[in-house]
Nucleic acid binder design. Structure first.
Length: 647
RNA sequence: CGGGGAGUGGCUCAGCCUGGUAGAGCACUUGGUUCGGGACCAAGGGGUCGCAGGUUCAAAUCCUGUCUCCCCGACCA
């Protein structure tokens, strides 16, 4: 931040004595002809700058970088490779615009170069994250990305992570991996160093590069194989402590996303490979996202579709006649629910039981849902407790059940665990496969024929329009992008890795842990998905690479001089500024300014200058205001302060 | 992994079917005219046509293999 003494230099007086003053011109400018293609030099005098800064480099942001930097960057000198056309393979807005505006370039599938503009925005996001982590007592670490296999084997995740983990060998043949997340590593530190309940709680975090061998990288920065994550871990003595740490993080997350200009919802989530009892995801509503969220507009209920519940299917069950015992009937050639619903069979989907076979940790499990419902794999995974779940292959199904998919059923089948959706609890008169090709059963009574060996669980996917499980509202379903995820891990890792402390009563107890992640690049990309228009990005002030941009509309010396005056004011006001000093036509500068999305645009042109004004425009609005030259600094300062203030 | 598509100057693409001189627009360089919403004229520079084999007198083009990237389905910040 700028020094208080310099801030106080702000004010009306400064504006009237700048180098835009006519008398100063001849001495301060090169002749138009020779100055045309020359790098603009600082006019010196009023605001001398170190030589390095004069070349226009704002200075590299990095660890400890604390924007805003002083001294405007010069567009003619900095590396901002903008493009008129987007690469053909960019599908989503954030990807297109990040490439076009010169923020990123692709190195490989799901691997991106972050160019200087991106680095500036990412540094701002990180600064906000850091501030909010520190505010809840977080302590920053930086741990290795390269991990020996042993530590992942201890927790069991060397296997669980499967192909998602990048693995490599060292020269001696030892197994290593690139870190996907750091529960194991932080837990190892806690295990080695934490001895007493008196040292708790601890909240540790880092902002660090993660590697995940995503099966399908896509959508620019939304789904990549190398990315920056803020990951935090809390260590408490007991569940109550974890509740407090978790709540601290939840509040910090809300502040972080709000400050970064994101509209988001916190939703109930599926814990997946992370394990643990409870978790919430922070979701940004956008069609570029890959998650489905069910939310009730009436109450605050919101959940990832993987866990969302509802009052149940909208269409009522349509039972057929009840029978004392299921009866076989021939269904030649019938392989699908639809085929069985049509003549000559005419068993509507809502009368059928759909039976699916999965492999949970390579052991078969059966799931039964209503014919017109969809199985939610995440729910099945929760129900059966498997670490890895996949659909069974036909060649695995036939030996087990004696039929191919299309005629499968769970009646009297107990060779593998069977889970039945709870909506079917009282269903009778149902139709299902007979585990013999071309034969089905009718008159199936779920309670009588299935539940003696099967378990009831929530398995079906909710649909838009179904009743909210908490109130009388109806559920909305929309696409969303996950930008953060917080987990109550409990003792999963501390037990497997034996990380414990002595409690007040002298007993050894495992640490109770939480883990909390934020995708830094995803925040940047999500902000663009939310804030852009046909012309380019519309950055929220708090994470814009520059807060203001100054354009000269022409090469006249008086325009340059006036621009220098404005830049001086902005510098003294602590506003991070990009000066478009290029010898380009006005249209080019306007287009680039719109594309880059810098919040404040100050255009210095002949027209305005004749009246002692410059043109002030907020990116994302239409209105252009004429502002007296001397007031730009104060006006920008006020806006920047208002829009970057901590809530 | 399954299915679909694409690799030709920095970017967007044509040429391939029907083998014979590698093209356009944008970008870049030089000169000139322009100059308030991606200017115009002229002259230039820049491409092992992803890679490797094969067929042929001759391959960007046909054949085989391979690599890479993108999109659609199963995972996650």
């Amino acid at each position: 931040m700028c020094a208080p003494s310099r801030r106080s230099a702000l004010g009306g007086a400064a504006g009237r004595q700048g180098p835009w003053n006519q008398a100063a011109l001849p001495a301060r400018s090169a002749s138009p002809a020779s100055g045309r293609r020359r790098r603009s030099r600082s006019t010196g005098g009023v605001y001398p700058a170190p030589a390095a800064r004069e070349r226009g480099w704002g200075g590299p942001p990095g660890p400890g970088y604390n924007p805003p930097t002083m001294r405007a960057a010069r567009f003619s000198q900095i590396f901002v490779p903008t493009l008129k056309e987007a690469p053909a393979d960019a599908q989503v807005a954030s990807h297109r615009l990040l490439v076009r505006a010169g923020f990123i370039r692709q190195l490989g599938a799901g691997i991106y170069d972050y160019l200087p503009l991106a680095k500036r925005t990412l540094a701002r996001v990180e600064a906000i994250v850091r501030e909010e982590m520190d505010a809840v007592g977080g302590q920053e670490f930086e741990l290795p990305a390269l991990h020996p296999a042993e530590i992942w084997k201890e927790s069991g995740r060397w296997t669980v992570m499967g192909d998602n983990m990048f693995r490599l060998k060292d020269r001696k043949g030892g197994d290593y991996c690139l870190g996907m997340t750091h529960e194991e590593i932080f837990t190892a530190i806690a295990r080695a160093e934490l001895r007493s309940y008196r040292q708790l709680p601890q909240v540790w975090y880092q902002i660090q590069t993660k590697f995940r061998d995503e099966p399908r990288p896509k959508s620019g920065l939304l789904r990549v194989r190398q990315f920056t994550m803020k990951d935090a871990y809390s260590f408490d003595l007991d569940a109550a402590g974890l509740d407090r740490s978790y709540e601290d993080q939840r509040v910090a997350y809300e502040r972080i996303f709000t400050r970064c200009g994101l509209d988001f919802v916190a939703v109930q989530a599926h814990s997946g490979a992370m394990g643990g009892s409870a978790s919430q995801e922070f979701m940004v509503r956008t069609d570029a996202g890959e998650d489905d969220v069910a939310a009730c507009p009436r109450c605050r209920y919101a959940a990832n579709a993987e866990t969302a519940r509802s009052k149940g299917p909208l269409a009522p069950l349509r039972p057929g006649p009840a029978l004392d015992v299921p009866r076989r009937f021939p269904t030649p050639g019938v392989r699908t629910i639809e085929a069985l619903a049509k003549p000559p069979h005419g068993r509507p989907a809502a009368m059928q039981l759909k039976t699916l076979v999965y492999m949970g940790d390579e052991k078969p499990v059966l799931a039964v849902v209503r014919g017109d419902d969809e199985l939610n794999e995440a729910k099945l995974q929760t129900a059966c407790g498997a670490a890895v779940l996949r659909p069974a292959r036909p060649e695995e199904i036939r030996p087990l059940l004696g039929a191919d998919p299309g005629s499968l059923g769970a009646v009297a089948f107990s060779a593998a665990p069977v889970y039945v959706d709870e909506s079917l609890r009282g269903a009778a008169g149902m139709v299902t496969g007979a585990n013999q090709d071309d034969v089905h059963l009718e008159g199936v009574d779920v309670a009588r024929d299935l539940l003696w060996h099967a378990a009831v669980a929530d398995l079906r996917s909710v649909r838009a329009g179904e009743g909210c499980p908490r109130c009388d509202g109806t559920l909305d379903l929309f696409k969303a992008l996950e930008v953060g995820h917080i987990f109550k891990l409990g003792t999963k890792y501390s037990e497997s890795m034996k990380a414990s402390v002595l409690a007040a009563d002298g007993k050894e107890v495992p640490l109770v842990m939480g883990s909390y992640g934020i995708g830094v690049e995803r925040i940047m990309a999500a902000a663009i998905e939310l804030h852009h228009d046909a012309d380019g990005i519309v950055w929220p002030m708090a994470i814009a690479p520059y807060q203001a941009t100054v354009l000269t509309l022409g090469q006249e010396p008086e325009l340059r001089a006036a621009a220098e005056e404005v830049l001086g004011q902005l510098e003294r006001a602590g506003v991070d500024t990009l000066y478009d000093d290029r010898d380009e036509r006005a249209g080019v500068k306007f287009k680039d300014a719109d594309l880059l999305g810098i919040p404040i645009r100050v255009a210095v042109g002949r027209k305005g200058l004749a009246g002692g004004t410059v043109e002030w425009k907020r990116r994302g609005t239409k209105e252009v205001q004429l502002v007296p030259l001397g007031e730009v600094g104060a006006k920008a300062r006020a806006l920047v302060e208002a829009e970057t203030r901590r809530p």
